[in-house]
Amino acid sequence: MQSAKNHFSTPHIYFLKFVIAGLSLVVLVCLFIIFVNGFFYLNVDLLRAKAGVRSTPAVLPKEKFEIFVKGPPGALAKNGNVVLAVKADSNGQNISGFDLLIGYDNDAFNLVKASPQKTQFAIYPYQRNGYLAITGTKMINVNETTIFKEDEVIELVFQAKSGGRHTFSLEPAIGRETTKMVDGKANILNVQTNEITVDVD
């Protein structure tokens, strides 16, 4: 046994080490090539996403709006009010305006009130068939920078008209309208969006 071990540890073991090192190098080079190609195809995906070739954008925007239920907790009684809110994160960008498109069933809910939660902004809600469009603009006398960091920007009160499970969705786009932020240079910033469900007894 000792003899066999000694026999295997001479030039063969150096050859084995050389093969292992070579294989490691090949694996790493392969991983590196995959990494590089990944970046190339990322570029392709960005363009394909713009061209509508893909339905899902390859890169999600970092700016986001998020709709959530502010209260009351639990299922909602018919004719009761639910308070929803939209919070925003502008990823460090100075924001001068925004547009929100909130899809909901007009037959199941009445909009009672829409209120701005940032005092620097005025809002202009507009009810459309199947959605609520809200434009927010920084007031003319406000010169300070506004960066959203998970800040509530809008509070909405809806009254339930019919039972069941209902969805409120922040729609990225409806027709030519879009949910977006607008920065201090009037550049359009696309945003992440979400949707929630509300149960009505």
Partner: peptide, 8 residues
Amino acid sequence: VIDAGDIT
């Protein structure tokens, strides 16, 4: 449509 982009 008149939106935040126009006003801004």
